[in-house]
Nucleic acid binder design. Structure first.
Lengths: 222, 222
DNA sequence: CGGTTCTTTGACGTGCATCAAATCCTGTGG
DNA sequence: CCACAGGATTTGATGCACGTCAAAGAACCG
């Protein structure tokens, strides 16, 4: 457990904004029952199959949602950043495992709350729909794009999500990106190298900083 | 436009049940503003990019949701059956195109309704979450399963969704299944042949009837 | 400094795509 | 009823994108 901080880094492009987008009075009511908590990098927030009594709003840090097959094959379903809401379950248990990629802190919303609060229920419905739209886009990536296109499209998504900075800070490993895009870490590395040779990005430094030279050119025609 | 029918074939395994699962009084209120409509096979219910003023509940028939890349590559996002709810958008416009696979009939729910009806909003939130759970499962299929596994797992899903019948009625073409699973129609055909030779299924007849001999054996270890 | 983990690059193998052709089915018109 | 055209499925032959295996840096850590 880390110390709690009160600054929420939620941005407008977040799929959620339980922290950022709620009306002030709803937010005030939320605060009354919301327990903030923090975790170091590499820790499990919740695991697939566990009971799902909370929704989570990511305040700081980065999280990934994963699923595994019985033989260990892993799919990274989604990467989450400040302002994103996660923990949606289909029924009483989680369908995915959530793991922190960095030190992260969360809001936790007890699942009884949205049942009682129509405004919150409405907001959560829209968030779930935004996640669904993302998942549809990702299905297109996985089903119909080449490895190089997947990597470029993913970097474009990430670059946009993080506010189109000149340098992208990648909190995840290459193998996590590979498991997100349905390819191998080696293939991911080769795609990065090709983009670098093409002048769209710079070299990935060991601390995960990736210069973006032509971000708009990363998007293929969808 | 087809004639309206009043029997809704929604089942318990449907992701939705706007027709089947609502409380009688809510249903009655819904009926007051719900316009039923019908379409023949191969027609477009709505297209990606169009305004999204309605949600849809499928009463009879079958529908698929698709997305295309600019160069024509197509991804079938989901197959829908009676009882399923669709038309969720992220914002004001549809993110997918919905096409009928058979003669189908729908309920249409104006999007202003859930805003006004907390019960309906709650229900839609749960439906959207169920769709998200499906989309996550599908990401695992697309990202980490072999072609043969994808086909078997898809058939298992479909078999379960349709009530585990002895004969599956496939309303879609092989190429639609292929575009759903991120493979080619030829590969899909080969996978069917392999399952047939293994004795799990029978021969696919020209009218789309597929005998299921060992449905439970279709599921891989996930 | 030695051990560990991650990334990068090369060499080679394979699963699926692609190309092609045969078969089957359906609809149409004589 | 039969002939024919067009489309879907099936199967075979071949090619290539990406997986797999391997090894060499590079960064980190005790």
């Amino acid at each position: 457990m880390l110390v709690l901080v009160d600054t929420c880094q939620a941005t407008a492009s977040a799929r959620g904004g339980l922290c950022a987008c709620l009306e002030p009075d709803t937010l005030r009511r939320l605060r009354a029952v919301t327990a903030d908590s923090g975790l170091a990098a590499g820790e499990t927030v919740f695991a697939a199959g566990e009971a799902a009594p909370f929704l989570y709003g990511l305040r700081q840090g980065a999280v990934m949602l994963t699923r595994r097959m019985a033989d260990g094959r892993r799919q990274v379903l989604s990467f989450l950043f400040p302002g994103d809401t996660f923990g949606f379950a289909d029924g009483p248990v989680h369908v995915a495992t959530a793991v922190t990629l960095q030190r992260s802190s969360f809001c936790r919303i007890p699942l009884v709350m949205p049942e009682a609060d129509p405004f919150l229920a409405q907001r959560l419905r829209h968030i779930a729909q935004a996640c669904l739209a993302d998942a549809y886009h990702h299905a297109l990536r996985l089903g119909r794009m080449t490895a190089a296109e997947r990597v470029a499209d993913f970097l474009f998504w990430l670059w946009t999500r993080l506010g189109r900075p000149e340098e992208l800070h990648l909190p995840m490993r290459l193998v996590d990106i590979a498991d997100h895009l349905g390819i191998r870490a080696e293939t991911t590395s080769r795609a990065f190298s090709a983009l670098r040779r093409a002048g769209l990005i710079g070299a990935l430094s060991s601390d995960g900083i990736l210069p973006i030279y032509q971000g708009a050119a990363l998007t293929g025609r969808r």
